[in-house]
């Protein structure tokens, strides 16, 4: 997973590469956080959606010659659609059938299943090799002695746009109801909100974000069906480290993780770099046993 910036390894280049990598995964993490909070479960299939949209972007551009902006739109839409389908066909049926107390484990089982189905379909349809969108490989921007390619600039731009949009969206009434959904869905439904619609919308939004990130990843370092696993683990690292606060936490955390990733990538052979991320997650999980969600129940109740 080497970023396709200019090959001269200098400090600023690592900083820049890390920034762009972190920017892309910040978007993934935000989507994961939205889905996890709205659904009150680990949306493990999020990574698979990310990988799928990356591969779909490659198909649309490389095979069907769609222009780049349209491909981006297509990727975002595909992500929204896939996430919504997972919600409609997997999570919602489980919620309808099983009581809320046993739901958590069953939703996890369903999520694992959805992830497997998506990955299998990707592999069966398009094979297991890594694919990338070949565009904008040259230097677009020079920042100090580092160079940024067009995809990298897009990554940072997308990050800034997404952060701004999310910050704004949270203040709208839709954003507030999403937050309430994370806190107490039953109360929300009793107050007359259409909880199912809210949830599905949140899932669609998370998928759209995955789609954007998938496009960006495909533009830079390429994706394959297994990219999803790494993506969901990275998203989990970020959300666990920074808490599941909607915007600030995941975004800042991702940038920091990007730096760590870039520097480790410089010092270790690249095949070992993912190991670092996974190990960080394990360490974090030990240190923060409170987990992803705000636990409002008392210690002595079930």
């Amino acid at each position: 997973m080497v970023s396709r910036g200019i090959g001269v390894k200098r400090m600023e280049q690592y900083l820049v590469n890390g920034l762009c990598w972190g920017a892309t995964y910040a978007i993934v993490a935000l989507g994961f956080s939205i889905a996890a909070n709205a659904g009150r479960t680990l949306h493990l299939a999020h990574g698979a959606v990310f990988a799928a949209t990356g591969i779909i972007s490659c198909q649309l551009h490389n095979a069907y010659s769609w222009p780049m902006p349209v491909t981006l739109v297509g990727s975002v839409v595909a992500g929204a659609v896939l996430s919504t389908l997972v919600d409609l066909w997997v999570y919602s049926p489980i919620r309808r059938r099983v009581s809320t107390q046993t739901a958590p484990e069953t939703l996890l089982v369903g999520a694992i299943g959805a992830d497997a189905v998506l990955r299998g379909l990707m592999g069966a349809s398009w094979g297991s090799e890594s694919r990338s969108l070949g565009w904008g490989g040259g230097v677009l921007l020079e920042v100090g002695s580092a160079a940024m390619s067009l995809p990298q600039v897009c990554q940072v731009a997308a990050f800034l746009l997404t952060a701004a949009a999310a910050a704004v969206a949270l203040r709208t009434s839709a954003g507030r109801s999403l937050r309430a959904l994370a806190d107490d869905p039953q109360l929300l439904s009793v107050l007359g909100y259409n909880v199912r619609l809210l949830r599905t919308t949140a899932m669609a939004a998370s998928g759209a974000l995955a789609g954007g990130a998938g496009f960006l990843a495909a533009s830079d370092w390429g994706v394959d069906p297994h990219s999803g696993l790494e993506a969901v683990l990275i998203a989990a690292v970020i959300t666990t480290a920074c808490g599941a606060r909607w915007v600030v936490g995941p975004m800042v955390g991702a940038i920091l993780l990007g730096q760590l990733h870039a520097w480790m990538g410089a010092m270790l052979p690249s095949k070992w770099a993912p190991l670092l991320v996974y190990s960080i997650l394990l360490v974090l999980l030990m240190l923060r046993p409170g987990g992803l969600f705000v636990v409002s129940s008392r210690p002595d109740s079930p």
């Binding site: 479960t41 680990l42 493990l44 958590p104 484990e105 996890l108 696993l229 969901v232 683990l233 989990a236 666990t240 996974y278 190990s279 997650l281 394990l282 999980l285 030990m286 046993p289 987990g291 992803l292």
Partner: peptide
């Protein structure tokens, strides 16, 4: 770890 985190950790 609680259930969800155990799952994540086992994945890692």
């Amino acid at each position: 770890l609680k259930k969800e985190q155990f799952l994540l950790a086992s994945l890692a």
